[in-house]
Nucleic acid binder design. Structure first.
Lengths: 156, 156
DNA sequence: TATGAAAGGTTTCCTTA
DNA sequence: TAAGGAAACCTTTCATA
């Protein structure tokens, strides 16, 4: 149900279903159905409702980049020239596969990105040859993530 | 196959399977099997291999926090007193449900976190009553994400 | 909002190349 | 070591309450 403030209302059963599937998207629906005590078809119907409300944006297999040799994660604050149209810079950032997040932010920087590289040498090369060469990028500040301690979705 | 440099070697079929499942974790395996031209059982066997290599860390339903009323994302750089043991601060950050990422970083801050709040008022309350009250936190710098333009996994 | 039933998909095991 | 067939179980949709 969609409330006037545009939030979606979900009940305890919806939450229970989502908590299982947020942990493991391929958990058998019938297994969840037996734990909750309703039919599999009822769960499918609720999932369709949650999908059309926009609460569920999809499902993903999560791959571990370290196993592919991507061991260096970094945040980069980007200063853009006043003259530069931000959307053009973002368009170019999208072409860089190492860039995995990009945010327009308040504060000193115009843009904050998260990037994933094989090692420090690769990071330096992406900075010098891909980020710094984008038109309008005047300066960057790099923060390497030495260790990620928390990575989760909002609790429901 | 695990190479001496600890990277895992995957072939074109593995990549094709993963590309489908990284987009949609519940995509029918038999549908993928028909597109690739091998049996469903062969795909399951490859997925088991990829799981035991650690390349696949699991699967998740992705929920859209905006639909639950969480519209304000922010990054917070945290300065810790020298005396403070960082792991103790992280332990306390894990208890704050709004904190969805936490990184030890190089640079000015000890810790960089990403948080998800309902609105600016909620953000201010988390900062003042939850983050700043952690022992050892001396100062914070907040960057609100006005708009996230890129959010993806590493390409394979 | 929930159900049973039916058609098709998942997953495992065993066998084969 | 990688692939396929078969069997038991699960998913998904539909008609229906």
């Amino acid at each position: 149900m969609k409330l006037s403030n545009n939030k979606v209302e979900i009940d305890g059963i919806d939450k229970e279903i989502l908590r299982y599937l947020m942990e493991d998207a391929r958990k058998p629906i019938l297994e969840i159905a037996r734990k909750i005590g309703i039919s599999g078809a009822a769960i499918h119907q609720r999932l369709r409702k949650l999908e059309s409300s926009g609460l569920i944006s999809g499902s993903k297999f999560i791959i571990n980049p370290k196993v592919l040799g991507y061991t260096t994660m970094a945040f980069i604050g980007i200063y853009l020239d006043k003259a530069m149209r931000n959307p053009e810079a973002v368009k170019q950032l999208k072409e860089i596969p190492e860039v995995i997040e990009c945010h327009f932010t308040t504060g000193n920087w115009s843009i904050l990105i998260k990037i994933l590289c094989r090692d420090n040498e690769h990071l330096m090369s992406v900075l010098n040859h891909k980020i710094q060469t984008i038109e309008g990028v005047s300066r960057t500040e790099t923060f390497i993530s030495l260790d990620q301690q928390i990575d989760r979705q909002i609790g429901i």
